[in-house]
Structures are given as structure tokens and as C-alpha cells.
Computed example of a mutant assay.
Amino acid sequence: MSTTTTTTTGQPAILPEGYEITNIVAVDENFNPDPTSEQDVVDKLKAKFKDFKIEVFLPNIELFEKLAEGQDPKVMLITCIDSRCNPTMLFGLEAGEAFVVRNVANFVHPYEGQHVAHENAAVGAAIELAVTVMDIKHIVVVGHSNCRGIKALMTRDDFTTDLVGNWVKVGLPAKEKVKQLYPELSFDEQLSLCQKEAVNVSLKNLLTYPYVKERVKGGGLHIHGMHYNLRHGRLTSWDIVRK
């Protein structure tokens, strides 16, 4: 059962019965952290936001005023949710530069139509918005080494027992290809190859979206694959083009 309550700031909050919102704090350049706080991760986020406001936002106020009115990024990045693969950090992105979607193992599922509620609805909606509304010029799918999602794909036989399995099973063509072509390789070597081939599965699935396929064919949209090696700090990049 959900109930609608009102917070101390007058903001309505829809929460399950028995829950309430507390500790509402406005964080800006005048924010003063509680010196008695244990400085947990949320306190650190607040402090870091204050640093951002002072060191980045205020010195670039004209840029942020412009971005407040709208955005015009030229690239969409589809990356993994892995905490070690922050696309802003990896590519030195500024605010407004990239449209970013993150999910387990950076997968794109095939297009299933405009009115079908399916497991890829969130990613599919982001692709549709990026291409048809924002006129994105480049889509980049970024995989990485030591990906837990790809490891789950490579080690499981049953993908029906949980949400993770149901999500990563879209990568089965990559797993099957690697197992078929490179049976003599060690598991770690096969895993590395599957990380890259899973990116290609997502690139192939991108081309099932009619507006993506149409724009790629017309030259107005370009799709790319990347793989980031965590240990060596090495990025491998490739493009997909029509023959």
C-alpha cells in the first residue's frame, strides 16, 4: 500500500506506508557539513557537490545557464554500470557533451516495436530519443575487461532464475561464437574475446532499430565499438560501416 505524504518542504512524497522522508538538506556553495557526521558515502557526495558548485559551476555559469535551456550532444555512449568504467572520467567529458546510458554489460537488445513493453524498454527509449529527437551523430557501445555481466553470460547455462540472467542472455550469440571458434583457448582468453564480441552483438542489435538503420544507411549516423582494458589502461576502438 502506498500513501502520499508531505515533506517538511511542502514537497509531496509517495512512499509505502510506514516510511517518511527526513534529513532534507539544500547543498550549494554555502553548505556546511555536520562536523559530527561519520562522513559516510552520502556525506561525501554532498561535500563533492559543494566543490563542484564552487570550482566548476560558478566559474562556468554562462555554460550552465545555456545548458539549463537545452542540450545538443553529438554522441551517445552505451556503457556498463561498472563503477570502474565511468565514461565521464575515461573520456574527459564536459556537461552537455554526451548522452549516456549505462546498464549491466552495456547491452542493447533487439528492437521489438514501438508499443511492446519489453525488457529493453529503458535502453530502447533512450536510443529513440537520442536518434529521432536529439539527432545524435554517433553511437558508441563501450565494453570493458573483468565485466561481471559477461562473466555471468559465459558461466551460466540457465538464464531464467534471476533478472541478471534474463538480461545478459541477449549476449548468447557472442558466447556461442567464441566457444565455437576458439575451443582451445583458456576461459580467461575466451572471456576477453566475448567482452568484445558482446559489443558487436549490441551494435548488430542497434541496426534492428529502423531509425538507426535508416540514418546509418544515409550517412547521418555512425556506430562504433570500444573496449577498455582496466589493468593496462588501453582502449580498443572500431567502427561499423556498410560494405
Rank of each mutant, 00 (worst) to 15 (best):
56 V>F: 06
221 L>T: 03
185 L>N: 08
89 M>F: 13
24 I>E: 15
86 N>V: 08
154 M>F: 03
32 N>L: 13
111 Y>P: 01
33 P>C: 04
40 D>I: 10
58 L>G: 06
215 R>M: 04
137 K>T: 10
171 G>F: 00
147 C>Y: 02
36 T>F: 07
16 P>V: 02
61 I>L: 14
73 P>I: 05
208 T>H: 01
237 S>Q: 15
29 E>Q: 15
25 V>M: 12
79 T>K: 01
95 A>F: 06
191 L>R: 00
182 Y>R: 10
218 G>V: 06
155 T>N: 02
104 V>G: 02
56 V>H: 09
98 A>T: 06
233 G>M: 00
41 V>D: 14
128 E>L: 09
189 E>Q: 11
43 D>M: 09
48 K>L: 13
119 E>K: 15
70 G>M: 07
121 A>D: 14
34 D>G: 02
231 R>Q: 14
43 D>A: 14
33 P>E: 02
12 P>N: 08
179 K>A: 12
212 V>R: 04
79 T>S: 10
116 V>D: 05
147 C>F: 03
213 K>C: 13
166 N>K: 13
19 Y>T: 02
222 H>L: 12
26 A>C: 12
45 L>Y: 11
182 Y>G: 07
71 Q>I: 06
163 L>F: 13
91 F>W: 03
17 E>H: 09
51 D>Y: 10
165 G>S: 05
92 G>Y: 02
192 S>Y: 10
4 T>Q: 14
23 N>G: 03
191 L>S: 01
48 K>T: 11
57 F>T: 04
160 T>K: 11
168 V>I: 08
192 S>A: 15
210 P>H: 04
173 P>K: 05
87 P>F: 00
239 D>V: 14
199 V>L: 04
107 F>H: 06
220 G>V: 05
113 G>I: 08
83 S>E: 04
90 L>Q: 03
107 F>T: 04
125 A>E: 12
243 K>D: 15
84 R>L: 05
186 S>I: 06
181 L>S: 14
49 F>A: 04
94 E>N: 15
75 V>C: 01
215 R>Q: 08
204 K>G: 08
105 A>W: 01
191 L>A: 00
60 N>F: 06
3 T>L: 12
180 Q>E: 14
177 K>S: 08
144 H>A: 03
143 G>F: 02
37 S>K: 10
33 P>S: 02
124 G>D: 07
30 N>G: 12
119 E>C: 11
213 K>E: 15
194 C>Y: 00
168 V>R: 00
21 I>N: 08
179 K>Q: 13
4 T>I: 13
41 V>Y: 13
170 V>K: 00
88 T>Q: 12
218 G>F: 09
243 K>I: 10
135 D>M: 06
103 N>K: 02
87 P>Y: 01
209 Y>F: 14
173 P>N: 08
82 D>V: 01
16 P>I: 01
90 L>A: 01
187 F>Q: 00
33 P>W: 04
232 H>A: 14
12 P>S: 09
12 P>F: 06
153 L>Q: 00
210 P>T: 07
173 P>S: 07
52 F>C: 08
18 G>T: 03
180 Q>R: 14
110 P>T: 06
29 E>I: 10
4 T>C: 12
127 I>M: 03
207 L>E: 09
179 K>G: 10
179 K>N: 13
151 K>H: 11
146 N>L: 05
